[in-house]
């Protein structure tokens, strides 16, 4: 054994493979980041610079004017109150929709997992299949129903719609989570004399924090990003941010102000992006649970 013989750690060479791996990831990262970068840069430029310069370039003269304009005075048709109108509408829709859809999904999932009710499995099966059916199949009759009850085009209407179409995923999410809890827990609570609601409130709900977080993330991003329901059911007074954004950008009269458009787009994306960056692994877990749908 000479000292030059191989010993200890194999010397690492930067191999072609490694370079290839990082090159691929870097190129992919550019592809994924470019649209965001361009949106951000465009929103910080003057229209003149946009017309003359390159859209990927950093602004030579930084301006926050487009953001202010987008927020407070961008026009939808004749109204020029900015996208903040849509923002607050979305908030008003979001809070009750998220709370009610989670509450209903949670109770339904609990009842399905631990209690035997005749026909419940059949109902759950239909509910699951319903998650795959295009919304257009239900929309028109729903509109008629709401019109008959006088709720059509109101805040209550859009909230109810979100609860209805959030039900399959929410129920599945909670049902699967509860199916993973030891059934002995429930049996012990039954033996101790717990009833439906007391077991739910005292035993099950306190254990549900992780799945409640996942459900909240799913619903906040899902409902904030909704376009179709907001457009169809919310009514002129309650149009959510996504709908208003589309109106601002795509139905402008005259010359388009790209910088304001992009600022408005960024503003609309901020809420789900913030949820995404803050929640990190929880978001991924939400996707995974949503994926259980399959």
């Amino acid at each position: 054994m000479t000292t030059s013989a191989p010993s200890g750690r194999k010397p690492r060479h930067l191999t072609v493979d490694r370079i290839g791996v990082y090159a691929f990831l870097a190129i992919a990262a550019v592809f994924f980041l470019l649209p965001l970068w361009i949106m951000l840069m465009t929103s910080l430029k003057t229209m003149e610079e946009i017309r003359l310069g390159s859209i990927i370039a950093f602004p030579s003269e930084l301006t926050f004017e487009p953001w202010l304009k987008a927020w407070a005075s961008a026009c939808t048709g004749l109204d020029c109150n900015g996208i903040r109108v849509g923002f607050w509408n979305s908030v008003k829709i979001l809070i009750p929709s998220v709370a009610l859809s989670i509450a209903l999904g949670c109770v339904t999932g609990y009842a399905l997992s631990f209690w035997r009710v005749k026909g419940a499995n059949m109902m759950f099966g239909i509910l699951l299949l319903g998650a795959f059916i295009p919304y257009q199949v239900f929309l028109y009759p729903l509109v008629r129903i709401f019109a008959t009850t006088g709720l059509y085009n109101s805040l209550a209407c859009i909230v109810i719609v979100h609860v209805i179409f959030g039900l399959p995923v929410m129920t599945l999410l909670f049902r699967n989570f509860y199916a993973g809890l030891p059934i002995e827990l429930f049996k012990a609570a039954r033996v101790d004399g717990g009833g439906f609601w007391s077991i739910f409130l005292l035993v099950i709900l306190p254990m549900s924090t992780p799945i409640l977080i996942v459900a909240t993330i799913l619903q906040v991003t899902g409902i904030w990003n909704d376009f179709l329901f907001g457009l169809t059911f919310a009514g002129r007074e309650n149009l959510p941010m996504t709908v208003q954004l589309n109106n601002i950008v795509n139905s402008t009269q005259g010359e388009r102000t790209y910088n304001v458009d992009m600022a408005a787009t960024m503003l609309t994306a901020i809420v789900p992006l913030a949820v995404y960056f803050v929640s990190g692994r929880w978001f991924v877990r939400g996707i995974a649970s949503g994926a259980v749908k399959g």
Binding site: L36, N246, P272
Partner: peptide, 25 residues
């Protein structure tokens, strides 16, 4: 990398559409 590759999924299709509409202008 994971964060970068997944963030578009957090955004709405409306935002996605407008961003690409502008990028591919």
């Amino acid at each position: 990398f994971r964060t970068i590759f997944l963030y578009p999924y957090a955004m709405s299709f409306v935002v996605t559409g407008l961003a690409w509409q502008w990028f591919l202008n």
